[in-house]
Amino acid sequence: MSSIFKFNFFKAGAYLWRTRNAPIVPIPKENAFPLFKGTPAFIARYALVFLSMDVMYMTTMVYECWEGGQLYHNPLKQINPQKKSVEDSTPPQDPTSVTPAKSQKPMWTRFAFGAFHCGLGGLIAAFLLSQRASWVRSMTLVRPLGKKAQPPQLYIEVAGHPNGYAHPFLLKDCKLASTEVGNDIMMVVVKEEGKFAFRALGATVAGKPMPTTGDQAVSYMLKTWIGNGGEVQRKKQKRT
C-alpha cells in the first residue's frame, strides 16, 4: 500500500487545500498523444470503500460516547456477557419497583471523546481523498492546433476523476521527479497544484506496454518525457 505522503494526514489535508481550485475538463481527442496509462495504487482505487468504513466508525463511536455513556465501545461486553447469579435472575417481588437509569459520563468527557473520534475520522477521510486526488490513471499530451504557436498542455487524469476528464496544465509548468517511497514510483510536480504519483511498471507508456519488473519502464518513461519537451526535477543533494 504505497503513499506519496507516507501516511502523513496533515500533508494530505494540505494537498487537498492546494488542489481545490484545479479545474477538471474533458480530455481533447484531437492531436492528443497518450503519454501514460496505468493503474493507480490500491488505496486510491478503493478509497471510497475505506471512506465508508471510516464514516461508520466515526458515527458509531460518537454515538457510543454521547448517547451510550461509554467513552469507547466494548464488543466483549456483548460477546461474553457477565454471568448472572440465581438471585439476579429472579424477577423482583415488588411490581412497583423501577429499574434505575443507566449512569452516564459527565458531558464534558462525552463531548471531548466524541470530538476526538470525529477529528480522527476526519483526518483519515482527508488522507483517503488525497490518495484519490494524487494517483494518476492517465496522462495525455495535447499540442493545440492554430496559426499561433501555443505551448503543449498536459492532461492528468487521477483516480478520483470520471473517465475522460482530467486536470489541464501547461507542460512547461510540470516536472518529472522521483519519490522517496520507491524507485519504481514517479511523480509529476506542478508548481503550487501539487504532486501526482504514478507507477511506470506494468503501465502503457506512449502506447507501448511496459514490463512489470526491472528498470526499463522508468528509463523509457524518462526518455519519452524528455523527448516531448518535458523537464526533469533533479534530486536535492543532502548537506553533509
Rank of each mutant, 00 (worst) to 15 (best):
M1K: 04
I4Y: 00
I4T: 05
F5E: 05
F7I: 10
N8S: 09
F9D: 03
F9L: 04
F9P: 05
K11G: 02
K11E: 13
A14M: 06
A14Y: 05
W17K: 13
R18C: 07
T19W: 03
T19Y: 06
A22N: 15
A22G: 08
P23E: 08
I24L: 13
I27L: 08
I27V: 15
E30A: 14
A32M: 13
P34H: 12
F36R: 03
F36I: 03
F36P: 04
P40A: 07
I43P: 02
R45G: 01
R45F: 03
Y46E: 02
A47Y: 04
A47V: 00
L48V: 00
L51F: 05
L51G: 01
D54T: 07
M56W: 00
M56K: 00
E67V: 15
G68L: 08
G69F: 07
G69W: 05
L71Y: 07
Y72E: 09
H73K: 11
Q78D: 15
K84T: 13
S85Q: 10
S85T: 15
V86Y: 10
V86P: 01
D88Q: 14
D88L: 03
T90M: 13
P92N: 03
Q93K: 08
Q93P: 00
P95W: 02
P95R: 02
T99R: 09
A101Q: 04
K102I: 01
M107E: 07
W108L: 12
W108G: 02
T109P: 00
F111L: 15
A115R: 03
F116R: 09
C118H: 05
G119Y: 10
L120A: 10
G121C: 04
G122E: 01
A125P: 00
A126F: 09
A126Q: 05
F127V: 00
L129C: 10
Q131F: 03
A133C: 09
S134Q: 02
S134R: 02
V136D: 03
R137N: 13
L141H: 07
R143A: 08
P144R: 12
L145D: 13
P152V: 11
Q153D: 08
L154R: 10
L154T: 12
E157A: 13
V158Y: 01
A159S: 14
P162A: 05
A166C: 06
A166D: 07
L170D: 15
D173G: 09
D173E: 14
K175Y: 14
K175E: 15
T179M: 08
T179H: 12
T179D: 07
E180N: 14
E180M: 12
E180D: 13
V181P: 00
G182F: 06
N183R: 12
M187S: 11
M187K: 14
V188T: 08
V189A: 06
V190S: 06
V190F: 04
E192G: 05
G194T: 01
G194N: 05
G194I: 03
A197R: 02
R199V: 12
R199I: 09
A200N: 12
L201F: 01
A203V: 07
T204R: 12
V205Q: 07
V205R: 09
A206N: 14
A206K: 13
K208G: 07
P209M: 08
P209E: 13
T212P: 02
T212R: 11
T213L: 15
G214D: 14
G214V: 11
D215C: 02
Q216I: 15
A217C: 13
A217N: 11
Y220H: 15
M221S: 12
L222H: 14
I226L: 12
G230Q: 00
Q233W: 01
K235R: 10
T240R: 05
T240W: 07
